[in-house]
Design a binder for these strands. Sequence first.
RNA 1: GCGCGGAUAGCUCAGUGGUAGAGCGGCUCGCUUACACCGAGUUGGUCGGGGGUUCGAAUCCCUCUCCGCGCACCA
Length: 901
Amino acid sequence: MPELDKTYTPAEVEARWYQRWLDDKCFEADPARVSATRPAYSIVIPPPNVTGVLHMGHVLNNTIQDILSRRARMLGKEVLWLPGTDHAGIATQNVVEKTLKKQGAIKHRDDLGREKLVEKIWEWKEKHGDIIIDQLKKMGCSCDWSRQRFTFDDDYNACVMRVFVDLYKKGLIYRGKRMVNWCPSSLTALSDEEVIPTAQSGFMYYFKVQVVEQPDTWLTIATTRPETIPGDTAVAVNPKDERYAHLIGKHIRRPLPLENQASIPIVGDDHVDFEFGTGVLKVTPAHDKADFEIGQRHKLEVIDVLHPNAILNDLAGKDLAGLDRFEGRKKAVELLKEMEVLVKEEPHQNNVGFSERAGVPIEPRLSEQWFLKYPSVKESQDVVANGEMKFHPDRWAKTYDHWLTGIQDWCISRQVWWGHRIPVWYKKGSDRSALSDGTVHCGTEPPSDPENWEQDPDVLDTWFSSWLWPFATMGWTGDKAKDAANPTLRAFYPTTDLVTGPDIIFFWVARMIMAGFEWMGELPFKNVYFTGIIRDKQGRKMSKSLGNSPDPLDLISRYSADALRFGIMRSAPLGQDIRYDEQNVELGRNFCTKLWNAARFRQMQGGETETEISATLLSSDDKWILLRLNTAIAEVTAALEDYRFSDATSTLYRFFWSEYCDWYIEASKATLQGTDDKRKANTLAVIDFVLSNTLRLFHPFMPFITEELWHGMAFNADLPADQGGNSIMVAKWPKPLDADELAHFGILPEDEKTANDKYEAVNLGRNLKSTFNINKRVRFVLKPAQELPTHEIEVLRILLNAEPLDVDAAFAPTQGTPSALTPLGTLFLPLDGLIDVEAERARIGKEVAKVESELEKVTAKLADEKFTSKVPQKVLDEHQQRKTDWQEKLAKLKEMISALG
RNA sequence: GCGCGGAUAGCUCAGUGGUAGAGCGGCUCGCUUACACCGAGUUGGUCGGGGGUUCGAAUCCCUCUCCGCGCACCA
């Protein structure tokens, strides 16, 4: 056995093993190896932004995927964890544009033009694209890097084009002039999902307008956006509103712009809520979704008073033109004041939609966009509703179902340049509003006479490429015969698990399911695990602007990747948000150190790795730890099968730290420090057995240190290469000893009690020592309740740190000797009158009080006829037994007090 | 407004009808030949409030309060 270093050096170990795993192609999936006895297991990574950097959310998400993948390998499956990145259209273009502007290279993207800018973005991608991938590698992620994909790869691009053309031909993609969410910063349309409603404190402005036909009548209108008054083309009231109904059909004078105070109609529309504001609504069809609909119903004029970048245009009038929308608001209020029509302004809370990527308020805007009527909606809804696809936690199924029920068409076009260009060409000189077969071309290839055509300038929403991820990454071609012969698709689609955040359930998960059905005829994954959101200690979401997100790479360098992984998994209960606390990572590091030292301890006992355990030589402690190991294996296995990762880590922690290290190893020192070589070798065999199982149980969580120790302890030595000889990654996942094996070792369930009783006696003895402030080795005397083997006495002595431990059935303590009732008998701490009798009396008195109170409770219950007559026999027996136990204990405690004198 | 989570020890969380738990922290001891990134001991709770069902409720029902999230509305 090679000797382990005194201290663990994770940085060196982690780098070395990761390279070795890569060299040995340990992560590479081979569809040819899939068989009935070697089933496939697959996950596709939620592709991070190609120019992004790793954050804690990635750590959580990818640790889980790695745990699932690594365990699947240990279960003997052929595993494909398929990695890659996405091009994140708007975000990436924003970053590059901003950088170029900062460098002074451009003022506006038009200065460079489409081709040049896209070139610059590619340069950026080449430079930054591998950062996040390298970071995932630092975490230990066991992805098949040979299959790494990017949403802009040629093959992938072809999939996107094919899908667009297919949907277009099916009539599901159409072009329409509609109100969309417009981002004035990125100058593009956004889908509803990319708009985040955000509470804003603003003002509600009340202003009055004159009814043209009745100059004495004034109406008061409430608005939050006075700058859009020049775009008003009507005011609306509810026809059922008695205050105003008689005015329908008349007109009011629009106050702005000053040079064009047009007369606009008063219309009746049910949309108006007469409880809200004044019950009179100004209608701006160009700048509000609801207003646009009112406008449609009443055939109102549409006046767009904003430039695309939200600067007011000439139609807003000379006072407002050229102002930004927010400055324009102030100016409009001033003008209303000057005209003396501003009635009041009140602070007002409302929700304003913000662009998810650019962080600015979006502007509802009428524009020509491409829309998609979602395909395969019913299948997608059913597959989750009927439980064929499982969500964990399953409450997300309800959210998913709700969204699909009220689903709206998806605006898929974006007015940026970094993205998949829409494969539609228009015949030059043709009228785009009246397209026909001859004037529009939609195809994966340009028209044969490209000089006569112009391609649509728009690109597709990034999610329009991401929704194909589960099969486009596997080489899907859309050709039935080819795809049927594609070994990767055949073996690994549908994938097994998807791990993602619930915030992208609509953006991504739902759409992937639809795409799966539409083009593969099948669901894309069988289980979806939704992680929680990582929050800081105060419960705030982690964000760049708050600066409360730690850098995972920094954590790795300070604590190791294993520590980070273990720490984050320990604090991530199923379905709940995670309070991140660096202490958990520190605890992960401590755990690694403990593991390292426990392995070193084993090595220091010498001897080769022992494999044969002799049933006849097993001590009660050996049997106990084997039973505890069985429980731990069963618990961890069950927890992982239910995606309860933090439960799994709790079990690992409890088993290893408290059961194995604190009790078993300490107890086995009786043997290891003894002179019986046969027993010693047998205990070492038990230790090796337990450690080799422990390392395997830990491996999915802490891949590096477990691999290092697997080899360091030579547990790989006698194993075939593909079963752990080469790497712990493919060692067999532990199984509890079955009934036959337990019988072979002569282990009975009640063996657990034998050791437990002993440990309880130890606890009580230690407690005695600390009560009397004894911190040296001292003499204990046990007056045994039954005969004890010498080995057990030696274990007791070591655990009690007693010198000596006398066993004396006839022990007659001097008055005042502290003692404790233990399952093994009465344990005395003879201090030869050195103790404070009063302190001891107080100590036992406290215990008496507790026992008396418990006894009182149970006695009262048993005296209550309502209780005894209604309760099941089993519960009654339990209570009876409890009463007897407390009574006995009380009697003995009283004896102890009287023995004090 | 509708829906979904959550409220248990100082902190993070287990605990779905039968004697309230764990880890961390705090405090007190201790460098006993694996480990001070450690060991031993100890201290912490009328289980958010109120009502109900029950012999018995942290647990089931009703109701209220507070925190978080989603959807709708948002003039």
